[in-house]
């Protein structure tokens, strides 16, 4: 059928995660909270994180928000990938994901679920959809003051 070449973009995993995300919601208690958006389309992601007592490791992470299949599936896969990771490890994953969106390498075995997103790199206008949650995560982890209210949005556009 004519839409066949879109199957590379809309992998079954992406459609499934879009339909039934595993990590939708808010963590309790909230240690880090960050909202990200793409102002030109209005998509938003509301990320909440729970950290261990030493504030070094992500114990839990969930997201809420409204967006396209690419944006929401990416957020859902991201949450699985960074849960249990230290903050520096998670930041490395962010880097690596953004690099993959620019055409860089796939993830190795342990995080290979994220490779479902690789097809997005072929659709330049959709890369910002895939990066939205990751961009918000980077802000959440890098902000020097532990933020719990997270009322401000960070824009994922015009940044890279």
């Amino acid at each position: 059928m004519p839409l066949d070449n879109l199957r590379g973009l809309y992998q079954q995993v992406i459609l499934e995660r879009y339909k039934k995300p595993h990590n939708f919601g808010r963590v309790d208690p909230v240690h880090r909270h960050q909202r990200g958006h793409n102002p030109s389309c209005g998509d938003t992601i509301d990320l909440t994180l729970q950290l261990d007592p030493s504030q070094e490791r992500i114990v839990d992470i969930k997201f809420e928000g409204a967006g396209c299949a690419i944006a929401l599936a990416s957020a859902d896969l991201m949450a699985d990938a960074v849960r249990g990771r230290t903050i520096p490890e998670a930041l490395q994953l962010v880097e690596r994901f953004q690099a993959m969106m620019r055409g860089g390498e796939e993830f190795p075995r342990e995080q290979r679920a994220l490779n479902a997103m690789k097809g997005v790199a072929q659709f330049p206008v959709r890369i910002k959809c895939a990066n939205l949650a990751w961009h918000a995560l980077k802000y959440a982890l890098e902000s020097p003051e532990p933020q719990a209210d997270g009322s401000a949005f960070v824009s994922n556009e015009n940044t890279d």
Binding site: P2, L3, L6, Y10, C41, A69, I70, A71, F123, C129
Partner: peptide, 15 residues
């Protein structure tokens, strides 16, 4: 219903 305009637009653009 259940389809985001971005996703729709990508599908149409393909055609």
């Amino acid at each position: 219903e259940a389809v985001h305009p971005h996703d729709l637009s990508t599908l149409l653009d393909e055609q």
